[in-house]
């Protein structure tokens, strides 16, 4: 660890505090503005709101259709993460544990997905979803998120499974347990840390994703939060107090989750992207 004297440390604190102020100010600004009237936003930009009423919040919540948006985001994110974890851990298990022809090829075939930016294939994805009647549906979104999440999840989970000694399964097999029982009762619990990392990385990514909902969803009532806010921003620009309230409400849940689970978030997101 670098040792610093009192002078150096003071400078370091000063730099870090300026950095923190830069991070917090925009959040503080939308939060303050969300309680102000439009007049106040223009006339008294620096002063705290004169009153704390939730008028803007109630209006924005209704007009931005946030009940639906939160519901849709929750359904899509949870279902997609569950889907990714299920099919990827199964595939990872097969590749890690079973010996079969083309095993190595199958692994490389899936890992190749790490190198394919899914957004670039959006035109065919759009056409396929249209053909199977999944365009403009939550199931369509979930299908795409699960499919594009497989490569990364399988890569991480397979590597984790490789480190579990096969002997652990032996006694269960002697007792006549089926491969499915062995997988769910013995291996899955052992790779839980990896499942948590994969789960969080994907959840945050899907919860925050804007691109796929923008293309796939086009009827009101099915939009996720980023899309709902984007539509609201377009329709109500100039109503900055309402937009501030809508933005505050949409960033708050993920912020709170982050502060509670920050350790997992940080490990998951940094390790996930690099390794």
């Amino acid at each position: 660890m670098l040792r610093t004297g009192i002078v150096a440390r003071t400078i370091i604190y000063a730099i870090l505090i300026v950095y923190m102020i830069l991070i917090i100010t925009p959040f503080l600004m939308i939060f303050m503005n969300s309680f102000k009237s439009l007049r106040e936003i223009f006339l008294r930009p620096f002063s705290p709101p004169s009153r704390f009423t939730f008028e803007n919040y109630i209006k924005a919540w209704k007009k931005a259709n946030l009940t639906n948006a939160f519901l849709n985001s929750a359904i899509v994110s949870f279902a997609s993460v569950a889907g990714i974890l299920l099919v990827s851990s199964m595939l990872a298990y097969a590749i890690s544990r079973y010996e079969f022809p083309l095993r190595r090829f199958l692994y490389i075939y899936v890992i190749a997905g790490l190198a394919l930016p899914a957004r670039l294939a959006i035109i065919p994805i759009y056409v396929i979803l249209q053909k199977i009647n999944l365009l403009d549906t939550r199931l369509g979104l979930i299908t795409i998120y699960v499919s594009t999440g497989i490569a990364f999840a399988t890569f991480l989970l397979k590597n984790f499974m490789d480190d579990i000694p096969v002997e652990i399964e032996e006694s269960a097999r002697m007792d006549g347990a089926t491969p499915w029982t062995i997988f769910t009762k013995i291996d899955l619990p052992l790779i839980r840390p990896a499942l948590v990392v994969v789960g969080i990385v994907n959840f945050v990514g899907i919860w925050n994703d804007f691109f796929f909902p923008l293309i796939i969803i086009n009827s009101r009532g099915k939009e996720t939060i980023p899309l709902a806010i984007s539509i609201f921003f377009g329709e109500y620009s100039n109503q900055w107090q309402l937009i501030s309230a809508a933005l505050s409400m949409s960033v708050l849940p993920i912020m709170i989750t982050f502060f509670i689970l920050s350790r997992y978030f940080i490990v998951g997101m940094t390790q996930g992207a690099i390794k």
């Binding site: 099919v87 595939l91 097969a94 079973y98 065919p124 497989i150």
Partner: peptide
């Protein structure tokens, strides 16, 4: 072989239809 297929088919199908095929189709 059937266990191998049971475990790998769902992911491989989804991945092939919605990731690999769209790239080729592009």
């Amino acid at each position: 072989i059937r266990y191998m297929l049971l475990f790998s088919t769902p992911a491989i199908l989804l991945y092939t239809i919605f990731v690999i095929y769209p790239f080729i189709y592009s």
